[in-house]
Amino acid sequence: MAACYFDVDGTLVRTNLIQPTLYYLRNQGTPVQTALQLGKALFRAPRMATAELLDRRMFNELLYSAYAGMSEDRLVVLADEVFDNVLRPSFFPAARSLVEKSKAAGHELVFVSGALDLIVERLAAYLGGGDVIANRLEMKDGIATGKLLNPVVAGPEKARIVRDHARARGHDLDECFAFSDSYSDVPMLSVVGHPAAVNPDRRLALLAKAYSWPRFDLTVSA
């Protein structure tokens, strides 16, 4: 049996990591807390924009520092809302068809995302199940510290995580599939035998063409 490794943001849904975070920040316990959190996020924005260009891991770490101080209970409760209000309306029209065809081919589904595990788990359940590899917040006494637990799911690290996952599950990587929209996921795409560029950015589209990787668009209905 082979596995299909799906990047999520930009690949299956049109949202990115920032939108769920903003939803969390906008929905703090009191308006003052919300204003405070949004202000802090605004202050961090220029650094995050630079980090996005330089190092995907650094970007994730900066982004998730915004969660510092949120209680685990609140994160869990809001995760349902984040999924229902942010992710579910953002699925690309043909995303479900791709996931269903992968499942029908007998492949194990694995969702690999820099988003929080709480949210990606809901997405996986919505799509009919599958393994989740996502970022996890460090908790101390039920409160988020704003740090991520290792391994941080981002950039080249995704390739190592996918390799380890396949080895642990007994999958032959040559038989496995990986789907992503972003050039930053080329390491992950490169470790499987069947990489595919989905709604690719310009650089990934060029690379996919050069290597004859399948390229397709989930933004149109099947």
Binding site: C4, A94, S97, L98, K101, S102, A104, A105, G106, H107, F177, F179, H194, A196, P214, R215, F216, D217, L218, V220, S221, A222
Partner: peptide, 18 residues
Amino acid sequence: EKYARDPALVQMYRTGHA
């Protein structure tokens, strides 16, 4: 049969022009 069920290529057939 295995190849005919390749999800990426099936998707290219369905939403692209492959």
